[in-house]
Computed example of a mutant assay.
Amino acid sequence: MESARVSGTVSIEEQRAYIKIETLRGKKPTGIHSALSDVCGELTVDRSTVSRWSNRFRRGRVSIHDDPRPGRPKTSTDERNVKPVADALEQDCRVTCEELSEVTGIPPASVYRILTNDLKKRKISARWVPHSLTGEEKQNAWTLQPC
């Protein structure tokens, strides 16, 4: 019998809630993972994650939420830092990460992360361009134009 897929996504916390309930019912992690896979498909957490959370719930864990983690929070790619990088890149698309770092005061590694992850840019022929180009942009990509 083929299982029906539910449209939409199931969050990680919702999957943890299901893991918790099924663990308390005595179901094994492989069975829980299989049931989650039927509903979530490719968005299912790994089998090792199901086992890890199942063990935690078996040992008495109550919360399905992540525990607070020590260390410095990730702040380099928040909107306050993305905008200055985007603005500086608009002025000169041939600028390097190091130059952007000097202009914005953001570390070069964070500048690179902002460019590639947030702004979806990559360096081609010394210019930062979008990852995916439209048909018109592909046609004009090799003509000599200012940034």
Rank of each mutant, 00 (worst) to 15 (best):
A126E: 15
P130N: 06
R59P: 00
K74S: 12
I114S: 08
D92Y: 04
I114P: 05
R127P: 02
K28E: 14
S7C: 12
A4P: 05
L119M: 02
E99R: 12
D78P: 00
R69L: 08
G41I: 00
V50E: 01
Q91G: 05
R80E: 12
L36F: 03
Q91S: 12
D87K: 15
G26S: 04
N81W: 05
N117V: 10
G8M: 05
R127Y: 03
G31M: 10
R47S: 09
L43P: 00
G31H: 11
S63Q: 07
C93T: 07
E90R: 15
G41T: 02
I19A: 02
V129W: 06
V82E: 09
T77H: 13
I21H: 14
R94Q: 15
S63R: 12
S7G: 12
L43S: 14
V39M: 09
E90H: 15
D118M: 06
S7Q: 14
S125L: 12
K83Q: 13
L24R: 11
N55S: 13
S11P: 01
E22D: 06
D87T: 13
L89H: 05
E137P: 05
E99C: 06
W53S: 01
E42Q: 09
E22G: 00
P68E: 12
E13S: 10
V10Y: 04
T134E: 05
R59F: 09
R52Y: 11
N55K: 14
V62N: 09
E14Y: 02
L115N: 03
V95Y: 09
T49R: 10
V129M: 13
K121E: 07
T44L: 03
A35T: 10
E22S: 10
P29G: 05
P70G: 11
I124W: 13
I19D: 00
K27F: 07
P70K: 13
V50L: 03
E136H: 11
I32L: 04
A4L: 15
L115E: 05
R25M: 06
R47Q: 14
I114N: 07
S11N: 03
D78I: 07
L36R: 02
H33T: 02
G105F: 06
S51Y: 12
T44I: 02
E98M: 11
E102K: 15
S34W: 07
I106T: 06
S3M: 10
V85H: 03
S48G: 06
I32N: 00
I32V: 09
C97F: 04
T104H: 05
G41K: 03
T9W: 12
C93W: 10
K123R: 15
S3I: 10
E137L: 11
S110C: 06
V45E: 01
E42W: 08
T75G: 07
R69K: 14
D46C: 10
T77C: 10
R113H: 12
D92A: 07
T134W: 02
I32K: 03
A126L: 14
I32C: 01
P108M: 07
S125P: 00
L24F: 06
D78E: 12
S51Q: 13
T49C: 08
D118Y: 08
K74N: 11
V39S: 11
A4F: 15
T96C: 03
I106D: 07
R94M: 09
R127V: 01
G60H: 04
V45G: 00
T23W: 04
R113S: 09
